[in-house]
């Protein structure tokens, strides 16, 4: 068990432990803040996987954007403490099917790429220029379509959230 493993288990503990708090907390404000640490732990795991761009994106968007949005959402609600969150078992059959599909595809990806992954991280290379080059050459159309999707999301969100006058 070297330093890498220790760091990995620390981040895994942060991510999973915070996720447990998110699910079981009775105070949705605490749940939202626990989600921050869960996102942070995931970002740490991305770093350990040498996905540096993904890790920074995780912090920039999930912690900097989505979590702030969720906190505002929590602050807009009337009751924060001791909310009766439904955690009963509802919709068992659809949930089982969805879990089987997601779990199956994840383990499928896992087993199909398992043989190609080397045991130790080989070289430390930043992935961001490679991503930029791919975006600007091979994936121009998805790049521009992403812009249109963002535009649609912006206009749609603004229309829905606008105060009705």
């Amino acid at each position: 068990m070297d330093l890498f493993d220790i760091v990995f288990y620390c981040f895994a503990l942060i991510a999973v432990g915070s996720a447990v708090v998110v699910v079981f907390s009775r105070n949705i404000m605490y749940a939202a803040f626990a989600l921050l640490f869960a996102f942070f732990g995931i970002a740490g795991l991305y770093v350990l996987l040498q996905a540096d761009f993904l890790a920074v994106t995780q912090i920039l968007i999930y912690i900097g954007g989505i979590l702030v949005l969720m906190l505002f959402g929590v602050m807009l609600t009337n009751r924060v403490v001791d909310v009766d969150i439904k955690t009963g078992t509802l919709q068992i059959v659809p949930a089982a099917i969805l879990a089987a599909v997601v779990g199956g595809s994840l383990s499928g990806v896992f087993y199909s790429t398992w043989s190609t992954v080397s045991g130790t991280p080989s070289d430390v290379a930043t992935t961001t220029p490679a991503i930029g080059e791919m975006l600007m050459t091979s994936y121009i159309l998805p790049f521009e379509i992403a812009s249109i999707i963002l535009l649609v999301a912006l206009i749609g969100a603004a229309m829905i959230a606008r105060r009705k006058t």
Binding site: I61, G65, I66, V68, L69, F72, G73, L76, L154, A157, A158, A161, R162
Partner: peptide
């Protein structure tokens, strides 16, 4: 909330 949505 609206400003945060646009910021995102």
């Amino acid at each position: 909330y609206v400003i945060a949505l646009i910021f995102l």
